[in-house]
Design a binder for these strands. Structure first.
Lengths: 235, 235
DNA sequence: GTAATAGTGTCTATGAGACATTATAAG
DNA sequence: CTTATAATGTCTCATAGACACTATTAC
């Protein structure tokens, strides 16, 4: 029926990372992009990613993710990492049929982006107002959707805040991620729950906010683990 | 350092399907397996799956899933389908480095398995008591975990029951999936919520259970959609 | 003192959990 | 009638939401 050769068809399997951070000055979420230096789309800003097949040096997909994280495209510590999904079709890459397994990452520490790195407003990228090559806008949108839905019933947004943070900061990040005002009483009760469960403890330290009374801080006792609440934030 | 050739390294990307059904007689969940007729592991029971790369005839990963669903390995209508994840490493397939994107499927209609098809107790397969080739036991375990966690806050288990079902049947399937007794009052309230939201409606029909008073039935108005409850089942 | 923000207390609404009571079938 | 199961009603408890009130800082 169709032409068969002994060579395998051209095929690419990549992993791509949607690495997010909380910009406190701008009060918005940002995503790390990498300025490509090879074709296709050389010079364009795109998700940092690597090819998994080809001359495979990784022992596993997780090893490949770690290789990407250590590469100059990323090269920052991650407070959170989870796989979001895999897409694949004949059109997304002009070279050939390709699949991408893409991840949600969160960085909490302040970092200075390298020469080919840049942080861009997540909203612009997810909406497509800031256009990325391939189907990367779609991957970003799916990743933001994952972040949103998981933030309704888990402590995920706290990953943006790092080891030590205050209740008002928690209110800010939840409001930002959920894109609506969240009452401080709800957040405080949730933080209390997490303390009772051994996920947080009060530090006794304070940090000053934008004037006014200083904020008491808590610190994470299980910084790599998510706490799951048994109720969602309601509409 | 290591041998490089101009040929691409051997690499396989497959999709595998964990297709589940509710066996009312045995009161347990079952998973569809396929008896392999080619190496490796010819003759063994394994997850139904197909290769995505190679001579690629699909336009997309979703098309590939549909090709698998129509193939003799599956060949049954699906009440639900979702991607669970992608794994990949150098060891899971004896032939070469390989990745698998695996899916959770649910079939509600009674079907007669074909000659190389069989339904097996999900618990046995997920626990590894019934051994599958490759890392398929692990894929099944991850899929069951997805089913479990999503069943805490959504109507997913109802997908096992088909278009028309009764409240006691809903209690049974939720108890089975969550692996603990679920009170009928909780289920009834949830079904009521779904009716108010336009997902279910009463049929006026009844079906007789195991003696006793007949069961009123409801029918699904949005059989392909999940309803999300705003609270989890506790404990 | 005032202004600003942090933190606490209290009330309501919702829904899960638990269990008692009534309803409808078969024999 | 008895027995079995379905369906309903009622109570408690936990927690999100809402908002009032008090506390602690800077000036």
């Amino acid at each position: 029926m169709h032409d068969r050769t002994t060579l395998p068809s051209a095929y690419l399997h990549t992993i791509d990372l949607c690495l997010l951070r909380y910009n406190r000055e701008r009060c918005e979420l940002e995503i790390l992009l990498h300025q490509r230096d090879s074709e296709p789309f050389a010079g364009h800003w795109a998700l940092p990613g690597i090819v998994v097949n080809g001359d495979v040096e990784d022992r596993s997909l997780n090893d490949a993710v770690e290789r990407l994280r250590r590469s100059s495209k990323v090269d920052m510590p991650l407070a959170w990492l989870e796989q979001v999904g895999t897409v694949g079709d004949a059109f997304r890459d002009p070279r050939c049929w390709s699949s991408s397994t893409f991840y949600l990452g969160i960085v909490s520490d302040p970092v200075q982006p390298g020469p080919q790195q840049g942080f861009f407003a997540l909203g612009e990228v997810a909406s497509g107002a800031f256009k990325l090559p391939f189907d990367h806008n779609s991957l970003v949108a799916q990743t933001r959707e994952r972040l949103f839905s998981k933030s309704l019933y888990s402590s995920l947004p706290l990953m943006f805040l790092g080891q030590e943070f205050s209740a008002p900061e928690a209110v800010s990040i939840f409001s930002l991620v959920l894109q609506r005002p969240v009452l401080k009483t709800s957040i405080r009760q949730r933080l209390l729950k997490m303390s009772e469960a051994g996920y947080l403890q009060e530090t006794g330290r304070k940090k000053s906010g934008d004037g006014g009374r200083p904020q008491a801080t808590v610190e994470s006792l299980k910084p790599t683990e998510l706490y799951l609440f048994d109720r969602c934030f309601l509409e």
